[in-house]
Simulated scan of single mutants.
Amino acid sequence: MHGPASSGWLLVALCAATGAYCLLRMRSPVEEQRRTAGAEALMAFGMAAMAVPAAVATPPRWAWITCTAVSGVAALRALRTARGGGHHVHHLMGTVAMAYMAAAMTAAPSHHAHGGTGVPVLTGALLLYFTGYVLRSGVRLLPLATAPVPAAGAVGWGDRPELSQACRLSMGIAMLAMLITL
């Protein structure tokens, strides 16, 4: 992605830490939570790889093509599960955004992908979606932070709803930052 190296490294750290937490959440005894955590870990680590500052490492074109393909396959999988609604629709939007950003970098990895003036329609639509998602997630997180903590052993730390919501919020913020620099 484009932008200052320091903000790129902060995005890398945020996304990698989120991905690591999502991997730990995959140890949940609840199958749906394990699947969701796996999808979120894939997205977080993919975002971390995409956020590495271009001044440090400029990946070859085949790396962006591979990232586009992996994100596209994840988007197709998310499309299949998104029919159920809920958080699965957000996974679909996230994987589509990842595939779009990787495809844009495949087309023009060394300069702004859209090239022209203004913001492309798809970029604008994704920016609006993720802005709304971040605002909604932040508001939804507030009541969870003040809720009483369950008794020890009742819920594993990886199954706590406020932690997974904070994970999703941080990935939404990172996605916004990456779309802005596209």
Rank of each mutant, 00 (worst) to 15 (best):
M171V: 06
M98W: 10
A104N: 13
H88W: 11
T123Y: 01
H112T: 09
M93I: 04
S170N: 11
Y100R: 10
R136E: 12
F130M: 05
G132T: 06
A107G: 14
G158S: 12
Q165T: 14
D159N: 13
A113S: 15
G156Y: 00
V121K: 05
G132S: 11
L144N: 05
V96D: 00
Y133K: 02
H87V: 03
Y100H: 12
L144Q: 14
G132M: 03
Q165K: 15
A125Q: 04
G115C: 13
G124N: 08
T123I: 02
M171W: 05
L128P: 00
G132Q: 09
R136S: 15
A154K: 12
H90T: 12
H112E: 03
G115S: 15
T123M: 05
A152K: 09
A151L: 13
A104D: 10
R140T: 04
V139D: 03
Q165W: 09
H88Y: 09
G118T: 04
T95I: 00
S110Q: 09
S137I: 01
A151Q: 11
H90V: 09
A107Q: 10
H112C: 05
P161T: 10
Y129I: 01
R168T: 08
P148Q: 10
E162T: 00
T106M: 07
H91I: 00
P161W: 13
P109H: 06
A154T: 15
M105I: 06
A152V: 12
H111A: 14
L92D: 06
M171P: 02
G158L: 06
P148K: 10
A151Y: 05
L141S: 09
P120E: 02
A99C: 09
H87T: 03
S164A: 13
M93S: 05
V155G: 11
L163W: 13
H90G: 04
T117S: 14
A174D: 13
Y133T: 04
S164H: 10
V155M: 10
M171Q: 14
M101G: 03
